[in-house]
Design a protein around this nucleic acid. Sequence first.
DNA 1: TTGAAGTGTCGAAGCGCTTGAATTGACGGT
DNA 2: ACCGTCAATTCAAGCGCTTCGACACTTCAA
Lengths: 340, 340
Amino acid sequence: MATLADVAKHAGVSASTVSYVLSGKRSISEQTRRRVEQSVIELGYHPNAGARALAARRSHIVALVVPLRADVYVPIMMEIAISVTMAARRHGYDVLLITNDEGVDGVRRVAASGLADGVILMDVELDDERIPALRAQGTQAALIGLPDNTAGLSCVDHDFTAAGALCADHLADLGHREIAFIGYGAGVYHRHAGYAERTLTGFRTRADQRGLRFLHRSCEGTYESTAGTLARILADRPDTTGFVVQNEGAIGPLLNLLRGMGRTVPEDASVVALCPEQLAEQYSPRLTAVTGPTKQLGRVAVEQVLGRIAAAGRGDRPGDELVLLTPVLTVRESTGPAPR
Amino acid sequence: MATLADVAKHAGVSASTVSYVLSGKRSISEQTRRRVEQSVIELGYHPNAGARALAARRSHIVALVVPLRADVYVPIMMEIAISVTMAARRHGYDVLLITNDEGVDGVRRVAASGLADGVILMDVELDDERIPALRAQGTQAALIGLPDNTAGLSCVDHDFTAAGALCADHLADLGHREIAFIGYGAGVYHRHAGYAERTLTGFRTRADQRGLRFLHRSCEGTYESTAGTLARILADRPDTTGFVVQNEGAIGPLLNLLRGMGRTVPEDASVVALCPEQLAEQYSPRLTAVTGPTKQLGRVAVEQVLGRIAAAGRGDRPGDELVLLTPVLTVRESTGPAPR
DNA sequence: TTGAAGTGTCGAAGCGCTTGAATTGACGGT
DNA sequence: ACCGTCAATTCAAGCGCTTCGACACTTCAA
């Protein structure tokens, strides 16, 4: 395996010159640069990652901590993981996968050993136990999700409040007046996953502004649970014509149940889902849905950590940053004008 | 950040002694070991990954190459990725995520730079272009999936042939005589993904042995495509009572369509799916399904690469290894005795 | 009593790269 | 002719760890 020294010899220059050609940190004459680049190619040289990390005190790796919980829609996690990886590559970084069963120690280990220059945390909870650890260690990080205290942190998340509001607006625009909001099961709210509450708040606020009557019911996402929830909703508010479904698991059952009781979507009832496009397209009828730009989540998180790493490298104190990505409502076949 | 030297000073021993305590590569007196371990804890010492990799010529990282294709069921990929990561950790290894858009170069890069000691390839195709690259570079690898030529390679995959046979046996046991096999769209077969063919072969062989009449029809997995496929099946073989569904995308549509035409599952028709448990549980009725042990796929792959890395480290030539994991058929609610 | 064979520890030489300081010319201004 | 300036290059000192060989000391068989 060729080393820097081999390249230097081959090109007839010193090792440091080769290093500078590769890093671009000092000016190099056109001639020398070309000779060196030629040698690099001829020898098939790849800088040794360990040596580079040791000398430069920078591994060019960020760690991505993925949750193991089953209640998150898995394809989305994968999409984030992939967008993180691709974004990182564009900046010359690689991504180390850390599962959350290592817990706080995983982050500590990877940061303290210099294996990773920074960390991206997915599925951050409101009072996430990993955050104090980050602060204590001075580890550079970007969080996907919003904790309650974001001071000194870089965070990115979907704007769930806006998502909730979009649902309310859409149904109001179509003339619906009685809406049911089918939320998550108690577990999700207990876990302090802020997104559930923020969506609800956004919806509630806008619904009030638009003069909608609505009902919020939590739902576990199973068939049975959805059946129960729907029954209670229709018992309490028989005139409900609009449904907002936050829990992806409840979508299929809800559609089946409505069909089963003879209510046609969208003629008799409109359904708006809060879910990835992929899912929305999968049902019949295809669902009008509010979707956040998942790939950007990964991209922004990468830019945030790398920004912080660069700042810390310059000796600056990295500032906070809070990015909320605007969701989009796509009208498909599951919503229509309210029946009279 | 504490270094080896700091620990040595703190414990009153030489740096090499600390190193040997940590690696266990030479015998150390009980007393010294304890003093060193104490110092490690007190100083919060974490060995520097770069330095270790440089000196030992081993990064303790394996790269996992994940496909970007959308036609693979994503949660399974995630499950594999996670089981790989956890298995690797158990052996003191970390996992680097590589997306397949880097193609062959990604593998080359991480191996040549010493970033990773080995590579795990997911979604291997029959004549995968990455395999010659591995051979040329002498990169240690484990493949998840079966290429056509496995000489000198370590591979692990589900035993799809057995999976197909299980389906045939189950339906035959229940007395079904006319079976339809709903396969993948042409794209999957063209891509030379061996699993599609192996499953079909396993089914076909066993079906013949058991005296079943069957029909194989490919299907894209969309609602429309499934409707067309089903219509053709019932036109050709109106007495079909058993369905084997290989394409996960066709499951939901098939169930809906059967319901729509008044055929009750499992009274009028039995459906066996080839899919993850998670998916099988999600439908109503819950599906009798053949499922491979996904987590083991990751675990075995890790053991294979690490085994090869260790062998190469000892100077041995790592041998081939081919592991096929036995799938399991779980009876749920979608299959029953054939109607007379 | 002596040598051979362990045990436990240390010293020092790297591993392949980065980077601050030093060096060498070339050029332009005075 | 001289000096300061600047661009291009080289030197050399690490970065923090592993590991080979050496060394001192025990132990035990001959």
